[in-house]
């Protein structure tokens, strides 16, 4: 079997013949311009957020609640804790369900059956459904079972639904990358299918599963629309203390602050954006580290 390096460079060599044609140079220039525009926009946003938010990036941001009375020293404590509660609960709900569903579909489901094919098609579609639709779905669901809509559990259900398709799809991709020989070897040595999945296939796929899951969670962390639709609160002056507690999250709080007329809230919003960006970068870095350290090539 060819090494990864050889496979990766092969298309490069093949491309060489037409490399200097005007069309390909034009294409290359267009690509670079596109990248440059994207990077300049991103940089402008980052720089403005840092310049505006830096003075407010202090201890008070993490320890104090949002305050209308003294916006000069207000903080995002309720929003940061709220985000942690909601994302934590989302992880507990979505990860076991998502991985289990992925394992079933990839390892056990009979693809000839019409219902499995139906699930298959729907999963791909669900991953592309706008986030706010999951908010509406959850609002209806909560109303039907008598669950209050503005609580941590309702928010977590909405975000779980949002990221479930992504987790299932990445789990399946990771399982698919595990060579069939490993399964066959395990079965040949007398392991049951369940033991094979639990002790061989799933552990081998874990780096890929973990990467996908963390990326899905970081998407959920940045989501405001479904939570706003559920009635996520914008003024909360207490720590959430359970699944049935009211909450606000960082994106909701930022959204609310940027709409305020007072300059102090704009600065506070920028500081909160930096915190949110930091958290997202941290999670994405974790995903990259896990992938690089534990990923195996067969």
């Amino acid at each position: 079997m060819a090494s990864i390096g050889a496979v990766a460079t092969a298309p490069l060599r093949a491309r060489k013949a037409g490399e200097n044609s005007p069309a390909s140079i034009g294409f290359l220039v267009t690509l670079w311009v596109a990248v440059a525009v994207a990077m300049i926009c991103l940089l402008t946003l980052l720089v403005t957020a840092f310049v505006d938010g830096y003075p407010r990036l202090d201890g008070a941001l993490f320890t104090r609640y949002s305050s209308r009375v003294i916006p000069e020293t207000a903080g995002a404590r309720a929003a940061i804790l709220g985000s942690m509660w909601v994302i934590g609960t989302t992880a507990l709900l979505a990860i076991p369900l998502g991985i289990a569903a992925g394992v079933y579909l990839e390892e056990f489901a009979d693809e000839q059956r019409w219902y499995n094919r139906l699930i298959e098609v729907n999963l791909q579609n669900l991953a592309a459904v706008p986030a706010i639709v999951y908010g509406m779905l959850t609002a209806g669901f909560a109303l039907a079972i008598g669950l209050e809509r503005r609580v941590v559990l309702a928010g977590a259900i909405a975000l779980s639904l949002l990221i479930l398709p992504v987790i299932i799809i990445t789990t399946r991709e990771a399982l698919r990358a595990v060579p069939a020989e490993i399964r066959q070897g395990s079965l040949a040595l007398g392991a049951t299918p369940l033991q094979t999945v639990w002790r061989q296939t799933l552990p081998s796929a874990l780096p890929g599963v973990a990467t996908g899951t963390i990326l899905a969670l970081s998407r959920a962390l940045g989501e405001a629309a479904p939570l706003l639709l559920l009635g996520g609160l914008v003024f909360v002056s207490y720590d959430p203390n359970g699944l049935m507690s009211g909450f606000t999250t960082l994106p909701i709080q930022i959204f609310s602050w940027t709409g305020q007329p007072q300059e102090e809230f704009q600065e506070l919003a920028s500081a909160a954006i930096i915190v949110l960006l930091g958290l997202l970068l941290l999670m994405n870095a974790l995903a990259i580290i896990i992938r690089n350290r534990y990923q195996r090539h067969w």
């Binding site: 305050s67 209308r68 009375v69 503005r150 009635g231 996520g232 609160l233 002056s237 009211g246 305020q260």
Partner: peptide
């Protein structure tokens, strides 16, 4: 919202065990 939020904040100073929350639907 800002008005009720301020009322809630000032009220909490006198009654620390009461949590006033405000949404913007």
């Amino acid at each position: 919202e800002p008005l009720t939020a301020v009322a809630g904040e000032l009220f909490k100073e006198e009654n620390p065990d009461v949590n006033v929350s405000v949404g913007t639907a």
